[in-house]
């Protein structure tokens, strides 16, 4: 065992990735001359063989079942998250629409009270807004949650939300008359209004 470290290195090299022709000759030659090294080499190989001989241990028979039992359930949420990360534009668009519609819905359900756009010369009777005979309303008229009876004249558009238009023979509306009853109608009205506003603004 007093031999050069070089020889020991060769032995390990032999055990790991093999020696080239020259190195092998060198090692062989040395081992033939040196009993200590031969012994060392033999012990190394024997130790390796002993380690390799330790019988393969088997996992317990219920191992797979136990692992499968303790796996976390594939979270639905993590699936969504992944999808969101993969499609940021769609996600942004979806969020935009959700916010927009929820805004419209909330204004829809908010006021159930009768409200009228402020105009002169109109009479409110219980649930009905009356434009009296002989009077003229200048400008648009919006009635929410109430009925409208036009006996006089409206010089503009009329929008009726959640209410009926009680026809009166003499009544006259110069502009459009819109009646909005459904939530979707309400939304449509909102969108239309916003668009018109934008266009009239740009103009």
């Amino acid at each position: 065992m007093k031999c050069a470290n070089e020889v020991i290195q060769l032995m390990h090299k032999h055990l790991d990735d093999g020696l080239n022709e020259e190195e092998r000759k060198q090692l062989k030659q040395h081992l033939q001359q040196c009993d200590d090294c031969q012994n060392h080499f033999h012990e190394l190989k024997r130790a390796v063989a002993m380690v390799q001989s330790t019988s393969a241990v088997q996992a317990p028979s219920d191992f797979t079942a136990k692992v499968m039992g303790s796996l976390p359930k594939e979270k639905k949420r993590s699936g969504y998250k992944r999808w969101f990360k993969a499609h940021p534009v769609v996600t942004a668009a979806a969020i935009f629409f959700i916010m927009m519609f929820s805004g419209i819905f909330s204004t829809w359900s908010q006021d159930q009270q009768l409200s009228v756009s402020k105009q002169k010369d109109i009479i409110i009777q219980e649930n009905t807004v009356i434009v009296p005979q002989g009077k003229t309303v200048e400008g648009d008229l919006v009635v929410k949650n109430g009925n409208l009876k036009v006996e006089g004249k409206v010089n503009g558009d009329v929008v009726l939300i959640n209410g009926d238009h009680l026809k009166a023979s003499a009544g006259e509306v110069t502009g459009d008359l819109n009646q909005v009853d459904q939530v979707f109608g309400w939304m449509w009205y909102n969108i239309k209004k916003t668009t018109t506003d934008i266009f009239s603004f740009t103009r």
Binding site: H12, L15, D16, H40, E43, L44, R46, A47, V48, M50, V51
Partner: peptide, 14 residues
Amino acid sequence: RVHRGREALRKKLR
């Protein structure tokens, strides 16, 4: 590490 581990085992198992 293989080298050192092997030497250690050699000493233990010889």
